[in-house]
Amino acid sequence: MSDIMVDIQRLSFSRGENLIYDGMSMQVRRGKVTAIMGPSGIGKTTLLKLIGGQLKPDSGHILFDGQDIPALSRAELYQARKKMSMLFQSGALFTEMSVFDNVAFPIREHTRLPESIIRLIVLMKLESVGLRGARDLMPAELSGGMARRAALARAIALDPELIMYDEPFAGQDPISMGVIVRLIKELNNALGLTSIVVSHDVTEVMSIADYVYVVAEKKVIGHGTPEQLRQDKSELVQQFLQGEADGAVPFHYRANAYEDELMESAR
C-alpha cells in the first residue's frame, strides 16, 4: 500500500475555452488532512469533481489508490467511488427524503444491513454532527449550516477511505465551525481517513491541515506544512494567506483590459 492516496500528475483541464488547470501536480498522503486553498473561481470544486471522476481531464493522470481514475471503466469507477466520499458545497441533500433517510441512503444502497443496525449507525453519525434531534426534518427545513452538517453525516455514513470537503466552513456560525473543524480532525485521526479540505478560510484550514496546497493561476503556487507556508517567500502565497484583495494574484475574473472595454461601449 503506497503512502500516497491521491496522486495528481501534470493535470490539464479546460471548460470550453477557459483553461482551468495547466499541468498541475499534487499529492495527497494517506491518513493526512490535505488542504487546497485558492481564490474563488479558481477551480477547486472542479478539482474535486476530477478526482471523483465526474469530469475527465484533457491530459494528465489522477491516481486514486493506484488506479488512474480517468482511465477506469464505468463499473470500475463506481467501485472506486465506494471508497471515497464528497461533501458538496451546497450539501446536495435529497430533498424528498428526511435527514434520517438521507444519511441512511448510502448504507441502504450499498449494504444489506438490517434496519435496526442502520438506525444505530445513522443516529451515531447524526450525533457526531450535532443533529440527532433533527433527524425527522426535511432538508428544506434546515438552515444552510445544518444542511451542510447533515450532508457531512451522510458523507461519513459508510466510513470512506477518502473524504473530500468542499468549503465545509462556509456559512457556519463560530460554534458549529469549531465542531466541524474538530470533527474533520477527529474523523481523520480516529478512523484513519484521508481528507481533502477545499476552503478559503485560511485560519481554520491552517489549524487542521497537515499539508497545504495553494492553487492559483492554473497550478500550485505554493505548498508545504502550515509552518512552511507561513515562512514561504512567494509574494502570491503571502498575499493569499494575509487576505489582501489586490496584489500579485488578480482578484478579478480574467477579462479584457478595462479601458478597452469601456472604449468599446463608447464607440
Binding site: G52, Q54, A92, L93, F94, T95, F105
Partner: peptide
Amino acid sequence: GLMKATEQLSGMEMMAVD
C-alpha cells in the same frame, strides 16, 4: 432538472449510485 441543479444527481453519482 432541480435535482441536477441542486447537485443531487452529482451527489448520488459520488455515492456510487447510478
